[in-house]
Design a protein around this nucleic acid. Sequence first.
DNA 1: TTAATTTTTGTTATAATATAACACTATGTA
DNA 2: TACATAGTGTTATATTATAACAAAAATTAA
Lengths: 132, 132
Amino acid sequence: MQNQQVLTKNQKIVLDIIEKSSQPLKAYSILFDVKKKGINAPLQVYRALDKLVEIGKIHKIESRNAFIACKNSKCQITKATVFSICENCEDVKEIHDHKLSEHLKHYKDNKGMKYSKYNLEFFGLCKKCINK
Amino acid sequence: MQNQQVLTKNQKIVLDIIEKSSQPLKAYSILFDVKKKGINAPLQVYRALDKLVEIGKIHKIESRNAFIACKNSKCQITKATVFSICENCEDVKEIHDHKLSEHLKHYKDNKGMKYSKYNLEFFGLCKKCINK
DNA sequence: TTAATTTTTGTTATAATATAACACTATGTA
DNA sequence: TACATAGTGTTATATTATAACAAAAATTAA
Ligand SMILES: [Zn+2]
Ligand SMILES: [Zn+2]
Ligand SMILES: [Zn+2]
Ligand SMILES: [Zn+2]
């Protein structure tokens, strides 16, 4: 039921904007874009974002305070994410690497703690930026 | 040279506060604490934090906007971090797992991007919080 | 040493990100 | 219907972080 959620008007509007962008969007830039659709206040955007993150339709890039759509239905279950971020051009991509995901999903530390979620952000230079 | 940096007065004051805490501190809580030592403005704290992160003395917990001291000299080289975060009591610990670090350090995706840095945050419940 | 350069500082102001509180409305369920 | 739950709209405010600028301190290069 969590995954086949019926979205509300505001949630749809916000998701739509994010899905149209290949790159992460910031909350206030989303707010600016949706003002013509009747969403006026930050809180309306943040509430929609919270819900969309919760149901796995979008992810938050923590180091950038920005939100990107998820194209992989599996993320909606795991809430475990891996991103690649170019430190020069800020290009962000979600990495779907089954082997890496499995490895992290089953990771146990020596403190008796078991993990249900993780967020991994890789930083470097993308192909374009390496070749200047 | 990067690692044996001589710290300035403000950097020392801020580092000192962070090292005395076992848990991550937020910038404005640090500011509150250092006011008696003559640091008056947010920017003075943020500048010290930036430098301390840069030289690897502290790490930023991105999902919490908070800063924690690093006890592992190796981090000062790699700038690659792994944290464990309890979602109930907010207890944060740095994970030093050589095998995991090596695995991530050498990770290559299929987009021709190679990574120099990463930040991994695991979320779950700590031992105490599992047993309520 | 002296002058040039870089880094750090102190300060004020402001930008950017995010939440509290409250009254109201829609939706689901018994 | 009545009750519970979730979402809305709004105003105000809290929290996190940076811009801009002038002055002081530390480094470097003649
Ligand atoms: Zn995803
Ligand atoms: Zn790039
Ligand atoms: Zn460390
Ligand atoms: Zn705990």
